[in-house]
């Protein structure tokens, strides 16, 4: 058949297309993380989340252990509630752990930094981290600095 040569090329073309998709999945995007879906959820209340977004990383000592999965406003206390999806392998956070919203660099993206505590009780799926520290908002800091300076000089 005349078409067999072109059929091989079509096969190669489709292989190349799928290879490109696989490369985009594994090398370019977070597909590996996406594929590994064993996570459990921790909840934390903040007074101000600053620029935190869904999918912002959750880190312990700089190591990414999870992502922010959802952000809501608690209707009663009117404070933000942050849901974090933590990889199932990191399941040893005690109830005394604390969560802080920090910024990578001066203007970089914001993330949640978890600091493990020493308590015996281990946090499980759906538990809440009590000890939280809200985002530092640069504008507030500048405002405080300007407000406080006269008294500092006197």
């Amino acid at each position: 058949m005349r078409s067999s040569g072109s059929q091989i090329l079509v096969g190669l073309f489709m292989l190349a297309g799928f290879a490109a998709l696989v490369m985009l999945g594994y090398k370019v995007s977070n597909f590996q993380e996406f594929a590994r879906q064993d996570t459990y959820t921790l909840i934390a209340n903040f007074t101000n989340i600053g620029g935190l977004k869904v999918r912002s990383p959750v880190k312990v000592g700089g190591v990414v252990v999870g992502r922010v999965s959802n952000i809501e406003l608690d209707n009663r206390s009117l404070t933000p509630v942050v849901y974090m999806a933590i990889a199932a392998e990191y399941d040893q956070f005690s109830s005394e752990s604390s969560a802080a919203i920090q910024t990578s660099g001066l203007l970089g993206e914001q993330f949640i930094s978890l600091t493990p505590g020493g308590d015996e009780v281990i946090l499980e799926d759906g538990d809440e981290i009590e000890d939280t520290q809200s985002a530092l908002v640069l504008e507030d800091l500048i405002g405080q600095f300007l407000f406080n300076r006269p008294s500092g000089n006197n």
Binding site: L24, G25, K27, V28, S29, N30, R55
Partner: peptide, 10 residues
Amino acid sequence: QDSVDFQKDI
């Protein structure tokens, strides 16, 4: 890998 989301972007 940090900023490209498989589901949302790809």
